[in-house]
Write a protein that binds this DNA or RNA. Structure first.
Length: 139
DNA sequence: GCCAACGTTGGC
DNA sequence: GCCAACGTTGGC
């Protein structure tokens, strides 16, 4: 199973907001970038991802799960844009900051480091394991 | 709040 | 099809 990373500005939609949505989860709408959309199209049900707070916070705060496959984005009539639904699985015991990620040579190839602007990113199995360990949270 | 980096748009 | 101009993102 592949792993992913979802970015959101906590001032707009943060981890607590997703938790509040409960088990049904929430549409990951608003993505207007082909690469990010293609990543969502590639997702399978039950695949897991990190939830990252961008702009303010700058840390990985929890684990989410894909609760619905890619479908048309309800916030636009433009049929190019699709999105998955995600739900909160569990928070990190210890959020992992971007600073920590950048300082760890094992994570230097992460998309988060190399292409910080991509809002939905793939995460390798190795990166997944390392980040869960740093977050003191089971994968 | 600033601005560098990136993706997209549109004129040619 | 190229590339300058523009808008947006996100770290600082």
């Amino acid at each position: 199973m592949a792993h992913w990373l979802f970015k959101s500005e906590p001032d707009v939609f943060g981890w607590d907001d997703l938790v509040a949505k409960g088990g049904a989860g929430e549409e990951w709408d608003g993505v207007r970038n082909y690469q990010a959309r293609n990543n969502m199209r590639a997702m399978a049900l039950g695949e897991t991802g990190f939830f990252y707070h961008s702009r303010s916070g700058l840390e990985v705060v929890g684990i989410v799960e894909v609760s619905a496959l890619a479908h048309p984005d309800s916030t636009t009539d433009d049929d190019r844009w699709e999105c998955v639904d995600v739900r909160a699985v569990r928070p990190f015991v210890k959020p992992v900051s971007l600073e920590t990620i950048k300082a760890d040579p094992r994570l230097s190839d992460m998309v988060l480091v190399k292409n910080s602007r991509l809002s939905v990113q793939p995460v390798t199995d190795a990166e997944w394991a390392i980040l869960c360990e740093l977050g003191e949270t089971k994968p």
